[in-house]
Computed example of a mutant assay.
Amino acid sequence: MLRVVEVRLDDIYVPAARRKTLHPETVRHLAEDIVENGMKTPIQVRHDGKRYVLVEGLHRMEAAKWLGEEIIEAYLVQARKH
């Protein structure tokens, strides 16, 4: 079962490859939707021992930042074993 935790946005590391997929227009639309309807689905992060690493939800995270939020709800997931 996934556990929801509150994480400071400044404490989330976004890998460079993931950051390249950011679309500012999508962030703006999501921010508008969050204002009207709230955040529907928490982002996903994993803890690597010293920090949180974004797994899923870059646009939702950036929309929350754009709205001035400092904390976001996130599902804490385990790293995939290959």
Score class of each variant (00 low, 15 high):
1 M>Q: 05
2 L>H: 05
2 L>N: 13
2 L>F: 14
3 R>A: 11
4 V>G: 05
4 V>A: 08
4 V>L: 09
5 V>D: 01
5 V>K: 02
6 E>L: 15
7 V>G: 04
7 V>Q: 04
8 R>Q: 13
8 R>A: 13
8 R>H: 15
9 L>V: 11
10 D>T: 08
10 D>V: 14
11 D>S: 07
12 I>H: 02
13 Y>W: 13
14 V>T: 12
14 V>C: 07
16 A>S: 10
16 A>I: 08
16 A>E: 10
18 R>D: 00
18 R>T: 06
18 R>V: 12
18 R>M: 11
18 R>K: 11
19 R>L: 15
19 R>M: 12
20 K>P: 01
20 K>L: 13
20 K>V: 08
20 K>M: 10
21 T>P: 00
22 L>K: 00
22 L>W: 06
22 L>H: 08
22 L>N: 04
23 H>Q: 14
23 H>R: 15
23 H>A: 15
24 P>G: 05
24 P>C: 09
25 E>I: 08
25 E>L: 11
26 T>G: 03
28 R>V: 13
29 H>S: 06
30 L>D: 03
30 L>A: 05
31 A>P: 09
31 A>V: 02
32 E>H: 04
33 D>M: 14
33 D>K: 10
34 I>P: 08
34 I>K: 00
34 I>A: 01
35 V>Y: 01
35 V>K: 14
35 V>L: 14
36 E>Q: 13
36 E>A: 15
37 N>M: 12
38 G>N: 10
38 G>S: 12
39 M>Y: 09
39 M>Q: 14
40 K>L: 13
40 K>Q: 12
40 K>E: 11
40 K>S: 06
41 T>M: 06
42 P>D: 12
43 I>M: 06
44 Q>L: 13
44 Q>P: 02
45 V>Q: 01
45 V>A: 00
46 R>G: 11
47 H>T: 01
47 H>L: 05
49 G>W: 10
49 G>P: 10
49 G>Q: 09
50 K>R: 14
50 K>Q: 10
51 R>E: 13
51 R>S: 11
52 Y>C: 09
52 Y>H: 13
52 Y>D: 08
53 V>A: 03
54 L>T: 03
54 L>S: 05
54 L>R: 12
55 V>M: 05
55 V>W: 07
55 V>G: 03
56 E>W: 00
56 E>G: 04
56 E>P: 02
57 G>M: 00
57 G>K: 01
58 L>Q: 00
58 L>H: 02
58 L>M: 06
58 L>D: 01
59 H>Q: 07
59 H>P: 03
59 H>V: 00
60 R>E: 09
61 M>N: 00
61 M>E: 05
62 E>A: 08
62 E>C: 06
63 A>Y: 03
64 A>P: 02
64 A>I: 07
65 K>Q: 12
65 K>F: 00
66 W>M: 10
66 W>G: 04
67 L>A: 06
67 L>D: 04
67 L>W: 05
68 G>P: 03
68 G>S: 11
68 G>Y: 13
69 E>Q: 11
69 E>D: 14
70 E>L: 10
71 I>D: 02
72 I>R: 03
72 I>H: 07
72 I>L: 02
72 I>S: 08
74 A>Y: 06
74 A>V: 05
75 Y>K: 06
76 L>S: 03
77 V>N: 02
78 Q>T: 07
79 A>Y: 02
80 R>W: 07
80 R>Y: 09
81 K>I: 05
81 K>M: 10
82 H>F: 10
